[in-house]
Amino acid sequence: MPRGRVASMAVMTADPELDAAIAAVEDQFSVLFNRARTVWSESAKRVHPDLQPAGYKLLSMIARAGETNAHVVAEQLDMDKSAVSRQVRQLEEAGLVESRVDERDARARVLVATPAAVERLHAVRSRNQERLRSALEDRSVDDLRVVADVLRRITEG
Rank of each mutant, 00 (worst) to 15 (best):
D138R: 13
E93G: 00
A21E: 04
T114I: 07
Q90N: 15
L51S: 02
S134E: 14
E119C: 01
H71N: 10
R86V: 10
D50M: 13
R125S: 09
R86H: 08
V118S: 08
V141N: 00
E75K: 03
I154P: 02
E156H: 07
A83K: 14
V118Y: 00
P115N: 01
E93K: 11
L32V: 04
A20W: 07
S41M: 06
L32Y: 10
W40G: 07
R152L: 08
V124A: 06
V101N: 01
S126I: 06
N128Y: 12
R127A: 15
A24I: 04
A54H: 06
T13V: 05
V11P: 05
P53W: 06
E137A: 12
A116N: 05
E26L: 15
H48Q: 04
G95K: 02
E42V: 09
V147C: 10
D78N: 14
D105Q: 04
A113I: 07
A21K: 14
I154M: 10
A94Q: 03
A94V: 04
V141I: 08
E103A: 15
E137I: 06
D50Q: 10
R46L: 10
P16N: 05
V39E: 05
V88N: 08
L96V: 05
A117E: 04
D50S: 15
V97D: 01
N69Q: 01
A44W: 11
M9R: 15
S60P: 04
V73I: 11
N69A: 06
R109K: 12
Q52H: 06
M9F: 13
Q87P: 00
V110S: 10
L32I: 14
A20I: 03
L91R: 09
I22R: 06
P16S: 10
A70D: 06
G4Y: 12
E42W: 04
S43D: 06
M61H: 13
A83H: 15
V73H: 07
E137T: 10
L96Y: 03
V124N: 03
T68D: 00
S134T: 12
E26D: 12
A135C: 02
L77A: 04
A135E: 13
E26T: 11
N128V: 13
R120W: 02
A21P: 05
S85Y: 03
L77Q: 07
S126K: 09
L132Y: 10
R145L: 02
P115E: 02
A116P: 07
D15P: 03
L121I: 01
R37T: 09
A113H: 05
V11F: 09
R104E: 15
T155K: 07
A23M: 14
A74F: 05
L91S: 03
L51G: 01
P115T: 05
R109V: 00
L144N: 01
V150F: 12
A113Q: 03
H48T: 03
G4P: 05
T155C: 13
R104C: 07
R120V: 04
K45C: 00
H122N: 13
A70I: 06
M61V: 09
A24Q: 10
D78Y: 12
V97I: 02
I22Q: 03
V25H: 08
Y56V: 08
D149V: 06
V110K: 09
S8G: 07
R125Q: 13
S82W: 10
L58T: 15
N34D: 11
